[in-house]
Amino acid sequence: MNIPLNIDWQQILLHLFNFSILTLGLYLLLYNPVKKFMDQRTEHYKKLDSEAIEKLKEAKELEISYEKRLEDIEKIIEERQASAAQEAKEAADAILKDAKEQAENILSEAQQAAQQERARILEDTQEEITQMAISATEKLLAQSSSGALNQFLEAVKKE
């Protein structure tokens, strides 16, 4: 049977066989290895990408934890500053109080000493004045003793 256009079933089958071999060969030798390589590279970059994302996530978590720690440390510092200031104030108050007490003691002691000194000076002065009065009297008496005493003695005798 003559088929128009010189169509030949045997040659169609030979073309099919030839093309099948070509397609299979190209798949095994070219398409599959290149595709595998491309997939492998895509996987490699995906892995790198996921690793980078993971590291970024870890870094963010680390940053958050450090920020939290920093905040905690700041709070601790503030608390310690406040307690230190309180302690310093208390110490200063105590020192001031001691100083006041000491000053009061010194002042009272000084006043007491001054009083005693004053009393001693007064006593000494009185003694000196007495001594001076006595000596002055004695001198006066010494100068006028013979005449007056004699007169006195004579007057006493006459009576």
């Binding site: 010189n6 169509i7 089958l13 073309h15 099919l16 093309f19």
Partner: peptide, 12 residues
Amino acid sequence: ADINGAIALGCL
């Protein structure tokens, strides 16, 4: 350009 080849590819 051979009709047998074109038919083979079209049918496949």
